[in-house]
């Protein structure tokens, strides 16, 4: 399974799109927001937590359909399904690889983009922490959505439609954590609730994703 993880990372690096695309998208969204709402720094600071979380979420969404679609097209998924590793493990590993290539860079880049939006000082730490805790849930939920739509020709759009409602709780708690951090309030409650969602999703959704893959492969 480590082999699969390393292979996915290697593929993401070699094909180029892996790390860069999501980050570039995140940057563009963040840059476009001031054009839309005006340059006034107080207003930007107020909406920065939400915009940063939303931008990270959309950037995550962008690369979801690649999780299984590429392996489905070239037949690797058939071969992995007949390999000695369980399909649940394949789903979990692929979600983990997606997180390392998407969620992790987004988490690390977010503070820099926070500067662009005048994010208040105390919020930076919580921004990184909340993204680090929350983005794994986005990857696992996304892997489930990708498993549901893997055999479909126009799966990409449908994938977004299926996955976005599932992202609601994570987005609410994540943005709330940063907002409270910005105002110097106690962040424990939303952060712990989000951590709960992440842990639950990581523990259970690979099983649902593997089931969806089996259905799609037969």
């Amino acid at each position: 399974m480590i082999r699969l993880f390393l292979r996915d990372l290697k593929l993401a690096i070699r094909s180029g799109g892996g790390f860069g695309l999501g980050l570039a998208f995140f940057l563009i969204v963040t840059v476009l927001v001031p054009f839309g709402v005006g340059p006034e720094s107080g207003r930007l600071a107020a909406i920065a937590p939400g915009i940063l979380w939303l931008g990270a979420l959309l950037a995550c969404l962008l690369s979801l359909d690649r999780i299984f679609a590429l392996d489905y097209e070239d037949g690797s998924l058939d071969l992995l399904a007949t390999a000695p590793i369980p399909l649940e493990g394949v789903a979990a590993v692929k979600a983990a690889a997606h997180w390392v290539t998407t969620g992790l860079p987004l988490t690390l880049a977010a503070p820099a983009l926070g500067v662009l939006l005048n994010l208040p000082g105390p919020a930076y730490g919580w921004l990184v922490v909340s993204l680090a805790v929350g983005t794994p849930a986005l990857s696992v939920i996304g892997a489930f959505g990708a498993a549901l739509t893997v055999g479909l020709k126009r799966g990409g759009l449908l994938l977004s439609l299926l996955v976005l409602p599932l992202y609601v709780p994570t987005l609410i708690f994540g943005a709330e954590t940063v907002r409270r951090g910005a105002e110097g309030l106690d962040v424990t409650t939303p952060l712990l609730l989000m951590a709960g969602i992440t842990l639950g999703a990581v523990a259970l959704l690979p099983f649902a994703a593997a089931q969806a893959l089996r259905i799609n492969l037969r």
Partner: peptide, 18 residues
């Protein structure tokens, strides 16, 4: 059982050995 079908399950950006 080892299965092999029309698609070879090869990754274009990996070498033969990889």
């Amino acid at each position: 059982v080892a299965y092999a079908a029309h698609a070879d399950g090869l990754k274009a950006t990996l070498t033969v050995a990889e």
